[in-house]
Amino acid sequence: MTAFLNSTRAELLRLRRWSAIWVIIGAGQALTLSFGYVFNYVAYKTGDDNFAEDGATSAQLLAELMPSAIPDVIISGLPMFGGALAMVVGALVAGNGFGWGTWKTVFTQGPSRVAAVGGSLAAVTVLVFAMMSATLVLCTGVSVAIAATEGQTIAMPVLSDLAASFGAGFLVLEMWALLGFLVGVLAKGPALAVGLGLVWSLVVENLLRGVGGLLSGVESVTDALPGTAGGSLAGAIVGGPNGTPGVLDAISGERALLTVAAYVLVAGGAALVVMRRRDLA
């Protein structure tokens, strides 16, 4: 246990000082800001109803910019860009250690491999939590500012809704981050892992879901994929597809939650098992 905590602290120290991580987290915030608020606010102010959603009225647009809509906003972007960014983080954290020889150095420090890799997974989890928290803080600040500017009463969302959305968003990001970590471990490097991972999560799954609409056999497969699970979990929170790409209702909310949780456990466990036995040449 001490070894695990030592490893987590060590990994957090080196991740905290890694500018690539901050760039990725910053990119996530910029995308949330743009798609969650900036574009909709511009559409609202210019009165161009076609900008964001077909036939959305001014009142609907404004409602989505208010603090009460925070639970929807913080999770809507996660199935697409949030997941992709989390995957990159996971792949970078695990994959670079092979080329740099840092896994080798770490494994000669003393903690067992399970403790060291477990510490790395824990540090990634802390990063994911930080990403999610930053998004929440950003959305709260921006929506309160918009409400004040527009002279609206500031009504905060119900805490349980907010917690459900935050928790679901955290799980979706964690799933993608650990999948990225696992692919980084399997590929023994970040480049292939990031490339293949992004093609998979952004392209292949969407194509498969398209085919799945035509062939029922394929659909039972796509229903088990991480993108479908993450998208459906987000969909369950926001109450069905809201026009944001990646937010789905392919499977029920409970099934989505279980699938995402299973991916988290399997990806983390598989990374541990592979690293425990591997020859580090």
Binding site: A10, R14, R17, W100, T102, W103, V106, Q109, G110
Partner: peptide, 19 residues
């Protein structure tokens, strides 16, 4: 085998934390 983006001291501090 060290983290290229960290300075020498932080690299060693990271390894010291592992121990």
């Amino acid at each position: 085998g060290f983290y290229p983006y960290l300075n020498g001291r932080d690299n060693l501090r990271t390894m010291a934390r592992y121990q």
